[in-house]
Design a protein around this nucleic acid. Structure first.
Lengths: 151, 151
DNA sequence: GTTAAATACGACATATTTTGTCGTATTTTC
DNA sequence: GAAAATACGACAAAATATGTCGTATTTAAC
């Protein structure tokens, strides 16, 4: 089954939620968890991962929270998935460590490499702002917007 | 992590293996299992599922086996995945029975519907013969081939 | 007609991955 | 100092994927 995981869903929900606010306004993990009625801990961790990758920035302590630190026009689904779920590998045979035990007799390795490449391209071409239909006030302010997103 | 599963891999390996033979020649599950050094039972079941969906046909008894019963030019990856792994649903919220518990407060449902549609289109456009680079003697014989597969 | 080789298929067992929880530390405001 | 927040590793639980077993059935060969 080809399925995106919860972490990526949470990340998308977070970005959607935060993008509705003014860029300077902070958002807490609790706030998002309450809003989507999801598990606080997991959502908090996803947001922390996004801080590591500089998609968000955080302020600690009382009154702390997170704010957007990236242009959602330039962020794509491949990157976001990588941030929260690690490298996108269509099949096991691609990862370095524990490579697939069938690989020595596999008759479809090259097709799978091709397929993996195509799938990565597919996800890379999907911008988050387009996907989530975000007007993106931050990006409009901080960076030149190359093309208007239609629809 | 977006990853195709073993069953789909086995199905592709089976088709690749079988397509190298003359259309009339039978292939046993054991033969494929030996060739790719994979688990016989699982591979046999995948082949049986392919019989159900009429991608293969089978002959029972000693000297029995499977043979191709479909045009691999017309078979696409979406269909093949569906046959061996059930419906392709990007996210849980789409399936009828146990729908996602977050759906009532989800703020990204419509984007996910769109994404799911795009992903399905992506897989539907990938023909098996193209993916596996199969010359497809069966289809060349039994059906008119619309366009030659380049590369 | 018995045996052997094969498909057919449900039930179960195991392994892997995903998802969520807990505990604890740290930062900052009040 | 207390409270509200991020930070983060370790573990637990749940879900899913994968593989195995047992048994039935079909058919060819002997």
């Amino acid at each position: 089954m080809v399925r995106i995981n919860r972490k990526l869903e949470y990340a998308l929900m977070v970005l959607k939620y935060m993008s509705a606010k003014a860029p300077s306004e902070l958002t807490t993990a609790k706030e998002v968890a309450d809003f989507i009625k999801g598990p606080f801990d997991t959502i908090a961790k996803v947001m922390q991962q996004m801080v590591h990758s500089e998609l968000l920035r955080s302020e600690q302590g009382v009154q702390g929270g997170y704010f957007l630190a990236t242009n959602l026009n330039k962020l794509n689904l491949f990157k976001l998935n990588e941030v929260v779920s690690g490298p996108m590998e269509l099949v096991k045979c691609f990862d370095e460590d524990h490579h697939c035990e069938l690989s020595s007799h596999c008759n479809i390795q090259s097709p799978l490499v091709t397929l993996n490449r195509k799938l990565i391209d597919f996800f890379q071409e999907l911008s988050i702002s387009e996907l989530l239909r975000i007007k993106s006030p931050l990006s409009a302010k901080s960076q030149s917007v190359k093309k208007e997103v239609a629809g």
